[in-house]
Design a protein around this nucleic acid. Structure first.
Length: 581
DNA sequence: GCCGTTTTCGGCCCGACTGTTTTCAGTCG
């Protein structure tokens, strides 16, 4: 089953190879087409089934040529055009450019001069000191590449939750529909909502294990079957991830779910507690001697151990068991708990859809308010200058007056300059409902510079929210070097809200940072950072992340109705005074 | 390769930053 994401990836790959060849403008066309495909609500394969290549060409940014390549991909699983380019320069380009600082041109230079085709080749020539001898490269670029390789290696074989979850979820849904399946559940680190996972675990109860296994290993996304028995099947998917399926008994379901969900250290701790009570805990149940005293459900299991149910997102043995024993386990925020979204981009800058479309979709998903936060001027690629922002504010006001059922707030994603000043003047900021600020350049400042930069921005009395506060990218880039304690102190002092960016490749703040923020009494919001209507559906990743950070609804301001939300922002008194009340 | 109330050719988000140069190419957002 080919997803829009798969097609997007294909188009990006073609774009990268074209860029490596130094072709002009085409890479950009494929890039845009990839973005459009990924932003589509309708599955592109269905579009193709119903209307052929002609229907594909109705996608904005997809013309005749790209439509035919998508069609070829859907029909044959490959694209000759891409294969030819690969034959021309047989480098594993997507792997190589996954390293930060390495792009298609660098990959080409390394191939042409040193024959680098794979990450292993790259590491070898870097260690041999050959890269620094090339024209245009030096010692620093060689070090940078080695650092990038190191980072990649630490995360090898891991998949961002944004890739792993949809596939696992889709498999779970299909298993659920089988007649022979009584119950099915996702387990493992996906259930714990870890930001990246190594594999997917799925449990089922079934009278006909053989039939379930047969279905499982014949799913269209299966590339290789590692093994298939009566209770366990294991496959490798085309996208590289392994999925394990286990058929368990009704009596053991809760125990198995607990065992396979982990984390390992959480389980070890639970088994120790069982031991202290003269019990034995394993994947089949909780036993007193030979007699099972719990195991059908996780609730039952925890209760028998003298504990309240501990949500999977908390099971890292980071104090959750002690908290549960002492009755101070937090009531973490619900997946349906958000009423608003405070970071959305539209076609006024780099978003795909109009303000109206975004508002309509947000409303359809049950949100009560959204802030439109397009980029500001100094983002060279696309930002709005003050005139354009002013015009947009008028448009938003008019739309908001006309709309019913959803409140549309005037906002901006204001750029924080290297010195901590903003690229929009205070008088205009004062007129916005929601001012978000973020860093988009000069990531490599010193720790003290970056810390002071963010603190200075937060001290601006109009700044409400610090967007994606640490700049990290899952499996690709560590947070900026900054003093988080100082950031939290100033956030608390100034009443600045920190964002949990729900985009699955950002998930910024990290879970441990959220927990620190919660402990410091700093308020949070969870935002989609939507650049298309389909992105509102990603908010649950942010909620999962917040749950991993022990955040309750009270810690997350966009669980509030809109007026109370606005009133709890830094300049809330202003809003409350001027707003309808 | 795509697109068009400046349409079927000639444009295509572009500036900051870095490391390498001594005027620039590549990457990033």
């Amino acid at each position: 089953m080919v997803s829009n994401r798969d097609i997007g990836r294909l188009l990006r790959e073609i774009s990268a190879y074209l860029e490596m060849e130094g072709v002009g403008f085409k890479p950009r066309a494929y890039q845009k087409a990839a973005e459009a495909v990924e932003a589509m609500e309708v599955p592109v394969p269905r579009l193709f089934d119903e209307g052929g290549a002609k229907a594909l060409a109705t996608i904005p940014g997809v013309g005749k040529s790209i439509a035919h390549k998508i069609a070829e991909f859907l029909e044959t699983g490959r694209v000759a055009y891409l294969e030819e380019m690969k034959a021309q320069r047989p480098v594993q380009l997507m792997e190589l450019i996954a390293i930060e600082g390495v792009g298609p041109k660098t990959a080409r230079a390394l191939y042409d001069a040193l024959g680098v085709r794979t990450l292993a080749d790259l590491e070898r020539v870097a260690r041999q000191g050959k890269i620094r001898t090339l024209r245009g490269f030096g010692e620093k670029s060689e070090q940078e590449i080695l650092r990038g390789l190191d980072f990649l290696r630490q995360h090898r074989g891991r998949f961002p939750i944004g890739e792993a979850f949809p596939i696992a979820y889709s498999i779970e849904q299909r298993l659920r529909e089988l007649d022979c399946v009584e119950k099915v559940a996702l387990a493992g680190s996906i259930l714990r909502r870890k930001e990246s996972v190594g594999d997917a675990d799925i449990l089922v109860i079934s009278k006909d294990a053989g039939a379930v296994m047969d279905f499982f290993i014949r799913m269209p996304e299966v590339a290789h079957v590692h093994g298939k028995g009566i209770t366990k099947g294991s496959v490798r998917l085309h996208m590289g991830m392994d999925v394990d399926l286990r058929v368990v008994s009704r009596e053991s379901f809760g125990a198995a779910l607990n065992y396979f969900t982990g984390s390992k250290s959480h389980n070890v701790h639970l088994r120790r507690i069982a031991q202290e009570r003269g019990l034995k805990l394993n994947e089949y149940g909780l036993f007193k001697g030979k007699k099972a005293i719990a195991g059908r459900t996780e609730e039952e299991l925890y209760r028998a151990l003298g504990l309240p149910f501990i949500p999977p997102e908390l099971r890292e043995d980071r104090g959750e068991i002690e908290a549960a024993q002492e009755g101070r386990l937090p009531q973490v925020i619900d997946y349906g708990g958000l009423r608003g979204d405070l970071q959305t981009q539209t076609d006024w800058t780099d978003g795909k859809h109009s303000i109206e479309d975004m508002a309509r979709e947000a409303q359809a998903l049950g949100l009560e308010y959204i802030a439109i936060t397009d980029h500001t001027a100094s983002l060279a690629m696309m930002g709005m200058d003050e005139d354009k922002l002013s015009r947009q504010m008028e448009v938003i006001e008019a739309l908001d007056r006309r709309s019913s059922g959803i409140r549309i707030l005037k906002g901006a994603e204001v750029n924080i300059m290297p010195d901590g000043l903003l690229d929009v003047g205070d008088s205009l900021l004062a007129k916005l409902d929601v001012v978000g600020v973020g860093v988009h350049s000069r990531f490599h400042q010193s720790r003290s510079q970056m810390t002071e930069r963010l603190c200075r921005a937060m001290r601006n009395p109009h700044v409400d929210i610090l967007f994606h506060p640490t700049g990290r990218v899952v499996l690709k880039r560590e947070p900026y070097d900054l003093d988080l304690d100082e950031i939290l102190r100033v956030a608390r002092q100034t009443g600045t809200v920190l964002e949990v960016d729900a985009m699955p490749d950002r998930l910024d703040l990290k879970d441990e940072h959220i927990r620190k923020a919660v402990e410091a009494g700093v308020k949070l919001v969870i935002d989609s950072d939507a650049h298309a209507t389909s992105h509102f559906g990603l908010l649950h990743y942010g909620v999962g992340q917040a749950r991993r950070g022990w955040a309750t609804a009270a810690d997350v301001l966009n669980t509030l109705p809109v007026e109370r939300f606005l009133a709890s922002l830094k300049d809330g008194r202003k809003s409350a005074a001027s707003g309808a009340r």
